[in-house]
């Protein structure tokens, strides 16, 4: 093996390793259009309309003593409707139905919309679909109507804190940019 081949081999090896290392730091712009985003995200346990009664003697007799309930309840979930409007246009109209065999699982709201940077009016309404049943169960409608300003790559997060819809934005903690 000649010295030239040795030197060329070392240089080629170094060049290949450099190529690999260059490939490990390729600049990339994931959001080339510089858009912003609005996210809706929260978890909620929706109220359930429950009807309870005392178990019959026959029902009790079929159960071991440690499994006999004081009352048997059957619940029916209250379906909520989520409405999201951006600058007056409806972007989301969704029914929130709890999962699980007894419809008692929490619902998860998780949506992201890309929007152009600038000032936008955000309207969110979350309320029971059937007002009469909901009133009986004590379910209420919550809404949000805000105008926010979004710079490129900004994200506005609409979430739910203590039953109320709130806006969160980077650098502003819980306080949104309001007008």
């Amino acid at each position: 093996m000649t010295t030239t081949a040795k030197v060329a081999g070392i240089l080629l090896g170094a060049a290949l390793c450099t190529l690999v290392i260059a490939g490990s730091r390729v600049p990339w712009t994931p959001v080339p259009d510089g858009s912003a985003a609005i996210r809706l995200s929260w978890r909620a346990v929706l109220p359930v309309v429950e009807e309870c009664r005392e178990p019959t003697a026959d029902e009790v007799a079929h159960l071991p003593s440690h499994m006999r309930p004081a009352e048997i309840c059957t619940g029916s979930p209250i379906t909520f409707r989520l409405l999201f409007l951006l600058d007056g246009a409806v972007l989301l109209d969704e029914l929130l139905v709890p999962g699980g065999s007894r419809s008692q699982r929490p619902v998860h709201v998780y949506h992201e919309f890309r929007v152009a940077p600038g000032t936008h009016r955000i309207e969110v309404e979350l309320g029971p679909e059937n007002a009469e049943v909901a009133t009986a169960a004590g379910a209420t409608t919550t809404s949000l109507d805000e105008t926010v300003r979004l710079d490129p790559l900004d994200i506005v997060l609409i979430t739910r804190v203590d039953g109320a819809l709130v806006i969160r934005q980077s650098g502003l903690e819980a306080a949104p940019t309001r007008f």
Partner: peptide, 15 residues
């Protein structure tokens, strides 16, 4: 990382 901002230009390990 800033979860309340979309990622801008970033160096990605392509492998």
């Amino acid at each position: 990382a800033d979860l309340l901002a979309l990622p801008s230009r970033v160096s990605v390990d392509w492998f």
